[in-house]
Every structure is written in structure tokens, then in C-alpha cells.
Design a protein around this nucleic acid. Structure first.
Length: 640
DNA sequence: TCTACACCTATGACTTGATA
DNA sequence: TATCAAGTCATAGGTGTAGA
């Protein structure tokens, strides 16, 4: 049962009644009449509570077993965090014998917020404009895996005071005027340090080159002490001749890099390099050395305190060597950084967090387009394409040869259209041509739309064949009757279409050695071979086509079929069996080869669909990267 | 019958270890 | 380092009961 605290009004009413001398039970009854339900112990508690308050100097104190957030503890916590370099919460908790969570709660309740001190990049309107002009061009050069050929290089300063192991956090109050700004670290004047040059690529990293303090890094120094050793030692090691990689030198637009002498040296040595016109200043995504590698290295150095320049050099070399295991991420032209960028109007907008996390990543990105599948698809489909083209050409030629206008006229004639072999050739050829074109060009040009069409068309053909086969099996009697009817139409049209005639002749004479649909007498249905044609003086009346003649008679007498339909005539010179039963027998005899052909066709179709989908998925995966690389400005402008 | 007290439960403030 | 869930503890209010 929930217990609600009695209100101050009820408490005041009880107190008033007690002062007037009413007993506790009477007070309960009086309050009941007023609609207030309290128990007698409650009245007793009020009486005792007031008594305690009178006896104590202050209000009722709340005693807890282990009060942690006491004023003194809170004060101590605030004293510890409200300094330039506060200790960790864990250390504070250990010191004050409270938990880290309690420290966190005290900090939060006291109105403090944690801020990480970071250096920030200043992005001028000029930088913004250059990004807009140059980003697309640069990212096009980096796209489709070409970034693997790049060697981004850069110099940076390492200072002793950056390696003191100091924490880069501070606590700030909402009332602080700098609350909405990042805390910008200021370098101390004339710190002890030196400059280091280095570079990374998908093939590995260069040797670090230390610049002697006090040396002037001009074009001469850059060529002799950096570029020449790089060309003679690093490049042969990283890009061996067998790899055939056209490596591209990636450097920023420092004065020594863009000097005429340096450019001349690069061109004389036929080095492909990023020109000053392509370089995007202050762009974390375009300068992995500046915003990722050096940052990572400095982060590692900052963890320990280093007291001398020599020690710093050793530590840098040690950390540089350790970066071997994460070599792959060097090849990705994007960085992990929480860099903030300030534009001219001092507005803050975040950019870098949108970039991929690559530092310390262990997951490998091995996705690429399979060349084997791509060129297999291309090779197979180009044959299919050429074959389709040839079949179409033959069909069109045959169709035109017959009589174009007559053919167009016959398009409207029901029942004979699909028995035109030329037209069948054209339709099949066009279909093969389209599918072959889609598969061939789609795989070669990595066009996902064409590949989708290709796989979709193949899938439709496959399922249509499957459905056709199933229906034929289920309705085999009906199909047989319908086939018989259509074949009879073909026989009736024998003299109307030369191609149809050639086809029927080939079936009867060369393939099945048959005559008519069910038997040779089916030819009576053709007007030219029907006995009634005798009236008009047709020589073929009461005969069968010459293709019905047995081979031994056909060579000697092309008219061996004449008169064979007459009742008195002999049939020993012609085939008397119909083509339909003969065809049935042929399939029964060749069931194994037919089945093999069907299975091979089905497998080829399924493989075609799988290959096309696989290739399409690979392309989409690569495109996702390409789109990301090609439009880094999308994220950038979104924050303006 | 009245009162004080023990005991029980609900509630809320607080602490703490685990974990993201 | 922040946050969550579970546990701890004090307080308020209800119930039952012993004692005056």
C-alpha cells in the first residue's frame, strides 16, 4: 500500500489540535469529519517530530550511513578539478575514498562539463574556395583504388613540451565565457624540437628523415636531403618493378615543395606528383600525414615524459616502426580526427568526425571487383553478342529477300506469323543481341543497370523455360494436339514461304526421314498436293514433296513423290512415317544428350545470373567508396 | 481508552560496480 | 569518463500491541 507524506496543512492542523489539548484519538476523529484520514501513530509522530525540532538547534537532520556528497567532499573535488591540469576522476576517487561514479556525479551536479583541449585548424574563406575548386579533381585521381598508388609525404615539428605526458582535458562551467568555444592550446615560445619528414603508402612507409635544428629547409635542402634519398632508397623498396604501380608523389604546398627548382627536379625525374594547383590546403581528408599519421605518432609520444632531444628521436623511430602492423590504413586517404575548423566568422563547425575511422583499425577492407568474374562475363557475352548480331542479320536478310511488303502484309495474318523462320531468327537474334550487349558492356564498363538487366533477363528466361517444361509435361496430351494442329498449318503453308519450305524439307529429308505430321497422307491438306488440284493441271496433285523421298530414290528422280497419294500408287519410294512420331522416337533415343544440353544451358544461365549479381554487388561496394571520396564537400557544406 | 513503541512497507536519495 | 542497474539506507506512514 503506498504511503503518502502528510501535507504541511494536515501537519499544521494536527499541531493546532494538540495545542488545544485534544487527545490523539480525538484528533483522528475530528480530522475524519473534515475528510482527512490519518492514523493515531501519525498524530503521535507529528507530536514527536515537533518535539525533536524544538530540542534541536536546527531542522531535522538526515543521517546516512556513508554520506559521500558532503559539502567538504564536494569542495575537495571541485578544488581538484578546477585547475589547469586536473587529475583523473579515478585518482580523485582514490584520494577521497569515494567511488569514481560519485566523483563523476559531484562534477556533474556542481555544473562542470568536461572538455578535451584540442588544437584547431583555421579554415579561411580562401581555403573553402580552394576546396570547392580542387576537391573533385583530386578525389577523381584518388578514386577506384588509385589512392593505393599515392605516397603522401609531409614534414612536421616534434617538440619536447608536447611529450610531457600531460592530460589534455579540462573542466569548464556553463557560466564560463569560453564554454561554447574549444580550448586552443598555445605553443610555448621557442620550444625545443626538430623537424621530421616522412611518408606512407599502401606499400609501406618511407624512412623518417630528421632535419638538423637550425637548418634552412629550402628547395636545395629538400631536393638533396629528402627527395634524392627518397628516390634512391624508399621508392625501389616500396614500388618494386614487378608491381608496375604508377606511383604518385603527394606533397603539400610548402615553399620548398613548390619552388621552381623542386618542380624542375620532379619533372626531370619523371615523377608524377600533386601539383600546387591540385593541393587542397587545410583539408584533413586530403592530407593523411598531417591529420592522421603525425597526430597518431604525437599521441603515442604524449603518453610518456621525454626529457631530451635524443630520447625524443629514439621514441619517434620506435613508434614509427610499431606502425608497421597497421600499414594498410596508410593507403586510405581519410583520417580519424576530431579536428574542429573555424571559419572567418569564428563559427565552429565540425568536419572531421564524418571521416572514416582508420587509425588503429584492425578490420581489413578487402572488397574489390573480381577481375576473373568481370572478364569471364565479358568474354562469354561478347560471343553471345556477336552470335545474336549474326543471327539477326541473317534473319533480316532472309526476310528482305523474300519480299518486304509481302512480309509486312503477312504480319497481320493470324496463324502463320510465328512459322516464319526468318522472323524467328530476327526475334531470337535481337533478344540475344540485347542480352549479350547488356552483359558485355555492363561487365566491361561496370554498369550496374546493364548488369541488373542482364541478370533479370536471364532469370526470366530461366523461369520461363522451367514453367514451359513443367506445363508441357502436365498438359502433354493437349500440347501434342496443339502441336499437331500447328504443324498441319505449317504443311498447309508449305508453298507460301520459301524459308518454311526449306525448314520442312530439312526436317523430312535430312533430320527425321519422315513425311507429313502423322503420316505421308497429311500432305493432302496442302492445296498444291491435294488430288483436287488435278482439275487445274497441277503436276504435284496427289503427290508429296520431294523431301519425302527416300535418299536412294531422291538422287535419281526428283519427282519420286508424284502420285504417291493415289490409292493405287506404291509408297516404297517415300517415307511413310509422320514427323511427329519420328521426332518422339528421336528424343527417346537421344534422351541423354538432350538432358545434358538442357542441364548445361540451365547451369550456364544460373552462373550468368550469379556472376552478374556478384559483379554488381562488388561494383556497388566500390561505388559506395567512390561516391564518398568524390564528394567530401557534401559534409563540409552541410555545417555552414 | 489513550499513548508510545516495535515492526513493516513504500519511497526516494544516494553509492557503487560494471560497462560502453 | 559517463551512465546504468542494483544495492543501501533513512524517512514517512500504516498496523499491531503492550502498558498506563
Amino acid at each position: 500500500m503506498p504511503r503518502n507524506k502528510i501535507s504541511d496543512i494536515v501537519e499544521g492542523r494536527i499541531l493546532q489540535l494538540l495545542r488545544w489539548g485534544y487527545s490523539q484519538s480525538l484528533i483522528v476523529n475530528i480530522l475524519k469529519l473534515d475528510g482527512i484520514h490519518v492514523s493515531q501513530p501519525t498524530v503521535s509522530n507529528v507530536k514527536q517530530k515537533i518535539g525533536r525540532q524544538r530540542n534541536s538547534e536546527s531542522k531535522i537532520k538526515i543521517f546516512r550511513k556513508k554520506p559521500s556528497q558532503t559539502p567538504s567532499i564536494i569542495k575537495k573535488v571541485i578544488e581538484k578539478i578546477d585547475v589547469k591540469e586536473p587529475p583523473t576522476q579515478r585518482a580523485i576517487a582514490k584520494d577521497l575514498h569515494i567511488s569514481q561514479s560519485t566523483v563523476s556525479n559531484i562534477i556533474k551536479n556542481s555544473g562542470f562539463t568536461l572538455r578535451k583541449k584540442q588544437k584547431v585548424q583555421k579554415l579561411t574563406s580562401s581555403n573553402v574556395m580552394k576546396r570547392g575548386q580542387r576537391s573533385f579533381k583530386l578525389y577523381r585521381r584518388l578514386a577506384r583504388g588509385r589512392y593505393k598508388n599515392f605516397i603522401p609525404t609531409d614534414e612536421t615539428w616534434f617538440y619536447l613540451d608536447e611529450t610531457s605526458g600531460r592530460r589534455k582535458v579540462c573542466y569548464i562551467k556553463k557560466t564560463d565565457p569560453d564554454y561554447d568555444r574549444m580550448i586552443i592550446q598555445q605553443n610555448t615560445s621557442r620550444p625545443k624540437g626538430f623537424m621530421v619528414w616522412g611518408g606512407v603508402s599502401s606499400q609501406g612507409k618511407t624512412t623518417l628523415r630528421f632535419v638538423t635544428p637550425g637548418t634552412k629547409v629550402n628547395s636545395n635542402y629538400y631536393i638533396n636531403n629528402v627527395l634524392k634519398p627518397f628516390l634512391t632508397k624508399d621508392v625501389p623498396r616500396l614500388f618494386r618493378k614487378g608491381k608496375k604501380l604508377k606511383w604518385i608523389f603527394h606533397q603539400d604546398s610548402a615553399p620548398s615543395h613548390t619552388a621552381k627548382e623542386t618542380i624542375k627536379f620532379l619533372e626531370q625525374n619523371k615523377i608524377h606528383y600533386i601539383t600546387p594547383q591540385e593541393w587542397m590546403p587545410a583539408s584533413p581528408d586530403a592530407a593523411p600525414m598531417d591529420y592522421s599519421i603525425w597526430g597518431h605518432l604525437k599521441q603515442q609520444l604524449n603518453k610518456t615524459r621525454i626529457d631530451s632531444i635524443e630520447e625524443l628521436k629514439k621514441k619517434i623511430l620506435y613508434e614509427w616502426r610499431k606502425m608497421n602492423e597497421t600499414r594498410r590504413y596508410f593507403s586510405t586517404p581519410c583520417i580519424q580526427s576530431s579536428t574542429q575548423i573555424i571559419d572567418d566568422s569564428d563559427k565552429l563547425f565540425s568536419m572531421a568526425p564524418r571521416f572514416q575511422k582508420v587509425v588503429r583499425t584492425t578490420r581489413r577492407d578487402d572488397t574489390e571487383i573480381s577481375r576473373c568474374i568481370k572478364y569471364s562475363m565479358f568474354g562469354f557475352n561478347i560471343l553471345f553478342w556477336i552470335l545474336g548480331f549474326m543471327i539477326t542479320a541473317i534473319g533480316i536478310y532472309a526476310w528482305i529477300e523474300k519480299d518486304t511488303f509481302d512480309n509486312f502484309g503477312r504480319l497481320t495474318m493470324r496463324g502463320t506469323l510465328f512459322f516464319d523462320p526468318a522472323l524467328v531468327f530476327v526475334l531470337v537474334g535481337v533478344f540475344m543481341f540485347c542480352i549479350g550487349f547488356a552483359g558485355c558492356v555492363g561487365s566491361l564498363r561496370e554498369n550496374t543497370c546493364l548488369l541488373l538487366f542482364f541478370s533479370f533477363a536471364l532469370a526470366i528466361i530461366f523461369f520461363a523455360q522451367l514453367a514451359f517444361g513443367t506445363l508441357v509435361f502436365i498438359y502433354r496430351e493437349k500440347v501434342k494436339n496443339e502441336g499437331e494442329k500447328q504443324l498441319m498449318i505449317m504443311i498447309e503453308s508449305y508453298r507460301d514461304d520459301p524459308d518454311l519450305q526449306n525448314m520442312i524439307d530439312w526436317i523430312q529429308r535430312d533430320w527425321l526421314h519422315c513425311c507429313g505430321v502423322n503420316n505421308y497422307r497429311n500432305w493432302e491438306s496442302n492445296i498444291y498436293f491435294n488430288c483436287s488440284s488435278k482439275i487445274v493441271g497441277s503436276v504435284e496433285a496427289c503427290g508429296v514433296p520431294a523431301s519425302c523421298c527416300r535418299a536412294e530414290y531422291f538422287h535419281n528422280n526428283k519427282q519420286c513423290g508424284y502420285g504417291t497419294l493415289e490409292s493405287s500408287a506404291g509408297t516404297h519410294m517415300i517415307y511413310t512415317d509422320g514427323c511427329l512420331p519420328k521426332a518422339s522416337q528421336w528424343f527417346e533415343r537421344h534422351i541423354l544428350p538432350v538432358a545434358i544440353v538442357v542441364v548445361v544451358l540451365a547451369v550456364l544461365q544460373i552462373l550468368g545470373i550469379c556472376f552478374a549479381q556478384n559483379l554488381r554487388n562488388d561494383i556497388l561496394a566500390q561505388k559506395a567508396k567512390w561516391i564518398w571520396h568524390a564528394h567530401p564537400m557534401m559534409n563540409y557544406y552541410r555545417h555552414q
